[in-house]
Amino acid sequence: MKTTVLLSHARHPVSDRPQLSRLEAQAIALAAEVDEAPSGLHAGRNETGVVAALGHGLTALDRLDLADTTDPLSALAAFLTRQRFDLILAGRRGEGGHETGLLPYRLAAILGLPILADAVAITPGAAVETLVVDQAMAKGARRRVTIRLPAIVTVHPLAPPPRPFAYGPMRRGTIRRHPVDGSANAADLDTAEERPHRLRPKLMRQSAGQAAGANLYVDPTPEEAARLILAYLEANGIRRYGPLNDR
């Protein structure tokens, strides 16, 4: 199954050094499940960050030589059309650009391919040219979808962790650089309204109004304690256990 993984412009949150996105590294691990020699595809001026993908399981890396400010959509679409991959994997949102997560969907629209989101596992289907994709759903549920190939699949963070990095294979991996001609079909990304990011705190997870001792029971009987616990679980919508015998 000829597979490629789209690699974006991730940077390390602490050092700001270019690096491979963790989600895309997870995508590589999935790709390696169905393809012995998966490749990666990156659009950018250099491969400083994404070269690590070769140490995480890719055997080759295709780089479309594009400025970071150029919208890579048309160049990627053209390359993917030429290469005819069976499977194109990507993270839910590419990193380092506008991070809208729309690119895989745009590519799907241009290439006329089906797209599935949030894969945590992929296996070849029973029939040829099919793929079984497990999608992550809430509360640990999975949706197992059999899809006809070729297709685009995005990967969920709950997919298995990336394969540990190995320096040797990275050194031996193939890097193919592809010039992209014609700025005619490449629109520049809009950078006009950008401003420095301001860190905003997230909402607190702890439920409010939990003053110490507000809900404290000292030495209740075990039965009473059990009833209190189940009542609390049901009242807060954690679980529902149906009618209990001694209510």
Binding site: H56, P161, R163, P164, F165, A166, Y167, G168, P169
Partner: peptide, 15 residues
């Protein structure tokens, strides 16, 4: 570590 990337997952985190 360097050729196989066969390292316990928890140990890969610091690396």
């Amino acid at each position: 570590t360097q050729e196989r990337g066969a390292i316990p997952l928890k140990a890969e985190e610091p690396l």
